[in-house]
Nucleic acid binder design. Structure first.
Length: 679
RNA sequence: UGGUCUAUGGUGUAACUGGCAACACGUCUGAUUUUGGUUCAGAAGAGUCUAGGUUCGAGCCCUAGUAGACCAACCA
């Protein structure tokens, strides 16, 4: 359900407008039309949520239609995976349809087109046809077979269908306009001969319709009212409409195609071809590798359907190119898992801790809340004893004031257990810490209600009893690519940006015994570490956990900032490299007054660099920049300085521009004007 | 170099038929906290790509630029 106050996206505006113009709401019908040649990914989720969301919003049916017109690439495996993913996301389709269901109807319509002299059989090679097609800037030339007699085309087309010809020898083309500025209108192909078994129709057919011929007609057959697709199909719309014109019965509903931008996610790729390449080159373990942006990968990683729907909802729909920050996706899954994940303890990088005043051989069972966010979630028991593991990072001999964890002489609480104090450490001869010796306060047990148990201490650590711990493998994931948009570089292949450390396997992590009963459906929070879920590779007695996402970690951020190595992101060269220098200077300049420190310095120096490519003639008009546009004036001042240094002579215009700068209230502008004035 | 589309804080989207540029993420403070999580309170951050025009008034309309995307598969 959509919240009523929510603003509408442009597709919803179109539908509202259609409704306002008298389109009956009960005629609204949508469809999601995947090609079964790969797995669904988070980008498809946008389209799925759009179409099925519209269906829910307007109480309209939504078909799942497999666009299966290319037997060479399509497989039943993909059909099954796609259905599973959509169902998992929680959507119900009205009908399960296949373009292949309409092959006979499509064939009949094609025959009709030939009879009306709107289609003809061609018999040239693909090279010849491509050459005749022309280019976007030059018109094409007609095929020599364009005016083949109708009867001949009819005969040939039937023989194509009957399997008399080899693949590639003949095709059926629409007769439209070889000079159209729209390449898709230059006699597009309707049918080609393909000798491959189809996953549903087997070898019944040896001619197969092209996308354009199949898609719009399928929409029409199913009486889809709004056919939504991604932007790259925009230029197909003219052909979509032309085909519909040829067969349209005015008593029936005529579908309309509308296009929206596909959704991209930072630090990953979102094309089936590239995803397939990652699978085939074994860079990932499969389509459902938890690092993949596929629905199945995200599911295996521990994402919930709710989180993905939320992400789609909050990302919106529009017509501009976009790269959505993966942090938005992570926010959505954290928000969901925080409410539902069972809190447990696990130590991934252990160091031994001995409580010297705790009785040897003693074990007590402590109670731990399953989820503090949910009062009805209950508790479970966790064993405590004299020898424990804690995280190595949770101890420092001398932690300093801002270190809230365990250090020598300081107290800290063991979550749901006792308050302990570190007394000494045992090291090997290289200085590595072997064990931490502590004492505990027997009065301080969690929930005991004693005064000692209420004491405030600086930090709380998670832990696990060595004797009772179970071992498991834990897999931690990092982004698959090191670049924000790995496939946006003309000069580099996306594979160049693969992150070599995207998978980190911890062979032996220590978990509280409660986890031995974990199932694939369970969601856990390993306290203070993140959200984890069982991986499908797990076997009896060999648990494997995937880290879905870490907790927000402000401490990690702080300690990273403290270390000077901070590899400050150099201003991304991005895809604006070809922008004219002056234009870029204007872009940077306007933000100047908002910058300070490093950012300001780096902006100023990029302006100086860019100014090397600017001529005086280009720059002079900008002397008239409005007084309030201080940033731009600073940028112009800087550029002027560069020109003067290169020998540009001072003139009236220059002098008055500098004068104005000197007299300005803005410190930075004044300063730069002074510098330039003294050149 | 032809056609089509797009341009709003760092990111993603809003802003109804022209009327104070809003929301979320992210960032930064502070409070609470037996998770450096959550929650709560707050802050910073936008000359709405540029230059003109119409208008009492333009993110929105017009003109001209600029930048980016898409289009020349017997793929979808």
């Amino acid at each position: 359900m959509k919240e009523s106050a929510a603003s509408l996206n442009f597709i919803e505006h179109i539908i509202e407008e259609d409704l306002a113009n008298g389109f009956p709401q009960d005629k609204l019908r949508f469809r999601f039309p995947p090609e079964p040649n790969g797995y669904l990914h988070i980008g498809h989720a946008a389209s799925i949520c759009l179409n099925f969301g519209l269906g829910e919003k307007y109480n309209a049916p939504v078909n799942l239609r497999f666009d299966d017109t290319n037997p060479a690439k399509e497989e039943q495996e993909y059909v099954d995976a796609i259905k599973k993913d959509i169902a998992w996301l929680g959507f119900k389709w009205a009908n399960e349809c296949y373009s292949s269901d309409y092959f006979q109807q499509l064939y009949d319509w094609a025959v009709q087109l030939i009879k009306e002299d709107k289609a003809y059989v061609d018999q040239q090679s693909s090279e010849e046809i491509a050459a005749q097609k022309g280019t976007p800037t030059t018109a094409g030339t007609p095929s020599p077979y364009r005016n083949r007699p109708i009867a001949e085309s009819l005969d040939l087309f039937e023989r194509m269908k009957n399997g008399e010809f080899s693949a590639g020898s003949y095709l059926l083309r629409a007769k439209i306009d070889m000079a159209s500025p729209n390449m898709h209108m230059r006699d597009p192909i309707l049918y080609r001969i393909v000798n491959a078994a189809h996953h549903r129709t087997g070898t019944d057919w040896c001619i197969y319709p092209m996308y354009d011929w199949a898609h719009g007609q399928s929409d029409y057959i199913e009486q889809v009212s709004h056919s939504l697709c991604t932007l790259e199909f925009k230029s197909h719309r003219e052909l979509y409409d032309w085909y519909l014109d040829q067969i349209n019965d005015s008593n029936l509903l005529r579908p309309k195609q509308r296009e929206f931008a596909r959704r991209n996610l930072s630090y990953t790729v979102m094309s089936k071809r590239k995803l397939l390449e990652l699978v085939q080159k074994k860079i990932v373990a499969g389509w459902d590798d938890p690092r993949m942006p596929t629905i199945s990968g995200l599911r295996r990683r521990g994402y919930t359907p709710e989180s993905i729907r939320k992400f789609s909802d909050v990302s919106g729909i529009s017509k501009r190119d976009n790269v959505t920050d993966v942090s938005l996706l992570e926010y959505c899954i954290r928000e969901d898992l925080n409410k539902r994940a069972t809190r447990v303890m696990a130590v991934l990088n252990p160091v031994k801790l001995v409580i010297t005043n705790y009785p040897e051989g003693n074990t007590e069972m402590l109670s731990m809340e399953n989820n503090p966010e949910d009062p009805n979630s209950g508790t479970h028991e966790v064993p405590f004893s004299r020898e424990l593991y804690i995280e190595r990072e949770d101890f420092k001999e001398d932690g300093g004031k801002k270190f809230f964890r365990l250090s020598l002489g300081n107290e800290v609480r063991l979550k749901s257990a006792y308050i302990i104090k570190a007394e000494s450490v045992v090291k090997d001869k290289d200085g590595n810490i072997l064990e931490i010796l502590c004492t505990y306060d027997p009065e301080s047990r969690s929930g005991s209600g004693t005064e000692a148990s209420m004491r405030k201490v600086k930090g709380t650590l998670h832990w696990v009893s060595i004797d009772h711990a179970i071992k498991a493998e834990v897999r931690e994931y990092d982004r698959l690519f090191l670049d924000e948009a790995p496939d946006s570089h003309e000069d580099k292949n996306f594979l160049d940006f693969v992150n070599p450390e995207s998978l980190r396997v911890i062979k032996e992590a220590y978990l509280e015994p409660y986890l031995s009963n974990a199932t694939l459906d369970d969601k856990f929070q390993f306290q203070r570490l993140g959200y984890f879920t069982l991986d499908t590779d797990s076997k009896e007695g060999q648990l494997i956990f995937n880290k879905t996402v870490g907790l927000k970690d402000t401490w990690a951020k702080q300690s990273q900032q403290a270390t000077p190595q901070a590899q400050k992101a150099a201003p991304a060269p991005s895809n604006q490299g070809k922008r004219k220098a002056l234009n870029e200077i204007q872009q940077i300049s306007k933000k100047l007054t908002n910058f300070s420190g490093d950012k300001l310095e780096s902006a100023l120096s990029s302006i100086l660099d860019l100014a090397e490519e600017v001529s005086y003639e280009e720059l002079e008009p900008l002397f008239n920049t409005a007084a309030k546009k201080v940033g731009t004036r600073i940028g112009v001042m800087l550029s002027l300085g560069v020109l003067l240094k290169k020998g540009q002579a001072r003139n009236e215009a220059i002098n008055s521009f500098i004068e104005a700068g000197l007299a300005d209230d803005n410190e930075l502008l004044k300063r730069e004007a002074e510098k330039v004035n003294s050149l």
